[in-house]
Design a protein around this nucleic acid. Sequence first.
DNA 1: GTCCAGGCATGCA
DNA 2: TGCATGCATGGA
Length: 278
Amino acid sequence: MTIKETDFGVRISDFGGINLGLTLDCGQAFRWRRLADGAFAGVVKGKAARIAEGGGDLIFLGCGKEEFSELWHPYFGFDTDYGRILSILSRNPFLAGCIEKYGVIRILRQEPFETLCSFIISACNNIPRIKGIIERMSKKYGEEIGGGLFAFPSAETLAGLSEDELLAVGTGFRAGYIIDAAKKAASGELDFGLIKSLPVEEAKKSLMTVRGVGEKVADCVLLFGLGFMNAYPVDRHIKRITAEVYPGGLPECVKNYEGIAQQYLFVEKAGFYKNRIS
DNA sequence: GTCCAGGCATGCA
DNA sequence: TGCATGCATGGA
């Protein structure tokens, strides 16, 4: 990977490629939007970001080298060799077709508490509405970071809210679940640093001590927030797809990278990519 | 009005 | 252990 500081921000090349639009808008992250000029804007760990594409390079606008290496390098998993992983997954013809079609969809390494809340909210919900709820939560209970943007609320803040205060932003029946997650995270009963170091099954069990967190939500947090590429979230779409495409079970080549395979299957078959924001 | 949405907790067999 | 049901909410 080459990193260059320019007048506009950090420009990176030779990083292994990315389908930026799909990576940021394939149902794993909920705070990115596409601007009129084609760049993407989002809020990550309390930092406002704009990312543009040019000639296969990515430009992190208004960002310095230090911020890039501390925040964006891990967020996009630039230390992960997607070329190698995708060539392994391509041993399966169906996945090879998806990878050919969509390019490199990266699994983001998001802030764990925000990821946990986001996927608690995702239960029995649709993606546009999940985004709306998270935006309203941030606007009402998150810290303002300038430009009319707001950080995702802290666990401490959410832990102090009443269910009615969360109902007011449209969380519905998940309000109590979010408060339980916030209390456990704020008290340290849920220690993401520790969970990250556990074997996947134990990590999953500890996430499932939170009300409103079952197998699927736990797997999403493991995959999209804690770096477990072997977590395989099975939602109603993936259940159908897996039965349809792999009635005999997942192919051997998927082992250890179930989560990445899952995201290609989701994009290909859940139909979401057809509806995503242009 | 009805149906559906990246589920989960609960009660009952 | 396995299955049905209710859960808030808004858009189609």
